[in-house]
């Protein structure tokens, strides 16, 4: 039957060894998701916001210094701390592994922002404004959030939905436009890439440090890492020991049990600072 739901479980892998801190993802996200322009006064009031940000850490003493970059976006936790505190259920977990913010339900209590350990939830203190020259640049698929509601990274859900409609429901092959037979209509990684259905930050990343796919998609780049991460969780749960030196996979604040759907890969240090 056509109406049968084809379920996905989305996941992102951030390879810190590849991230150069170029901020292309930040710009792409800002353009894709109708995020207003942060002015000087926004920063002075500590109210500037991005859905994805690059955190920069310096290591070592001058002149032996190294910069480390970590892109941080909403981790789409399985046990999200933001969800139980919302009094109006404006944020909830859907069956695709995404933490969803419903703008029209939100009343702006900001409890979720306080409870988020990653501080990725952003509050609209003002109505968004754009210069007149940028009005036609706005993305028509994304709601413009008004003053007084919370917003955050959505894994570019508008792109994923467009992909699901075009490939799984209509059965249109992204590049060629051919009809896909009804049995094969499952959005895979190649189709997401060709049809621009990947999140904007992933598409913009020049070094492929950000990877996004279905966690169960064998052809996608993220399945092996999520398998490894799930194995680690299972080992820890049974009281076993995970050899941290021989794995690159980790999740942010894993120890507080949020179970994020974003995995980070440790930076490989061939020349550590003390030996340089």
């Amino acid at each position: 039957m056509v109406t049968q739901r084809i379920d996905h479980k989305w996941g992102m892998v951030v390879d810190l060894d590849r991230c150069t801190g170029c901020q292309a993802c930040v710009v792409a996200c800002q353009a894709e998701n109708n995020i207003p322009i942060n002015t000087k006064s926004f920063y002075q009031q500590r109210r500037a916001y991005h859905w994805i940000r690059i955190e920069r850490y310096w290591e070592g003493e001058f002149p032996n210094v190294k910069a480390k970059f970590i892109p941080i976006m909403c981790q789409h936790c399985e046990n999200a701390p933001c969800e139980p505190v919302c009094p109006v259920f404006a944020t909830y977990h859907n069956d695709e592994g995404m933490n969803v913010q419903v703008y029209n339900r939100c009343i702006g209590t900001r409890y979720c922002s306080v409870n988020c350990p990653y501080t990725v939830r952003m509050f609209n203190f003002w109505d968004p404004k754009w210069p007149k020259s940028l009005r036609n640049q706005l993305n028509p698929d994304v709601t413009i959030r008004t003053r007084g509601i919370m917003e955050k990274c959505s894994f570019c859900v508008q792109r994923l939905r467009r992909g699901e409609v075009n490939v799984e429901r209509r059965g249109i092959e992204p590049l060629t436009g051919e009809r896909i037979p009804a049995a094969d209509r499952k959005l895979n990684y190649r189709q997401m890439k060709e049809g621009n259905y990947l999140p904007a930050c992933v598409q913009a990343c020049p070094t492929n440090a950000l990877q996004f796919a279905d966690q169960n998609d064998n052809t996608g780049p993220v399945k092996e890492y999520f398998d490894e991460a799930n194995e680690q969780i299972e080992t820890r749960h049974q009281g076993g020991h995970v050899d941290e030196a021989h794995t690159r996979v980790y999740r942010l604040f894993e120890e507080i049990g949020t179970k994020p759907n974003v995995i980070y890969l440790k930076k490989v240090e061939p020349f550590p600072l003390d030996k340089a």
Binding site: M98, N104, D141, T143, V157
Partner: peptide, 12 residues
């Protein structure tokens, strides 16, 4: 029609 009623179907 037992089609998805997830919020993100309509609200994005």
């Amino acid at each position: 029609n037992s089609v998805p009623t997830d919020c993100t179907v309509c609200h994005k």
